[in-house]
Design a binder for these strands. Structure first.
Length: 116
DNA sequence: AATATGACTGTCT
DNA sequence: AAGACAGCCATAT
């Protein structure tokens, strides 16, 4: 770890997740990069520990697939928030992909960032 | 201390 | 497109 306590890590991950605006999503790996500590699995672990109050459904896999464990529930939230969904029932990562620092976003240039 | 597991990711076949 | 394989980091047994 990069010198952050367990609580600090959780707080940091949740902070990033809560920064995700409605209609946007972030992959586990992206959050791990944003936090700069741990890996995608640790982010997923924090989500599993989350009891509520956190928009966990805005956190998706790198391929845009929603967490298998909760599936339909996340999909309902996405439809309610107007998240760009693909015909396959997955999130359209080409449009919904988001990054806390859009100016340094690794995938800039396709207009896939900024308020919808 | 070692092995197994998990709300993951990326590459190769 | 789909499955196999390896890499990754922390917790549980």
């Amino acid at each position: 770890m990069a010198g952050v306590d367990h609580e600090e890590y959780v707080e940091r991950v949740l902070a990033v997740v809560e920064q995700i605006p409605p209609g946007r999503v972030m992959s586990y790996g992206a959050i791990a990069e944003a936090v700069g500590v741990g890996g995608p699995r640790q982010v997923g672990r924090v989500m599993s520990l989350d009891s509520g109050g956190t928009p966990w459904w805005r956190v998706v896999r790198a391929d845009g697939g929603l967490p298998d464990c909760h599936g339909g529930e996340a999909l309902s939230h996405h439809r309610a928030e107007g998240t760009p969904l693909r015909a396959s029932g997955r999130v359209d990562m080409a449009v919904a992909a988001w990054w806390p620092a859009e100016e340094e976003q690794p995938t800039t240039g396709s207009g896939s960032v900024g308020p919808l």
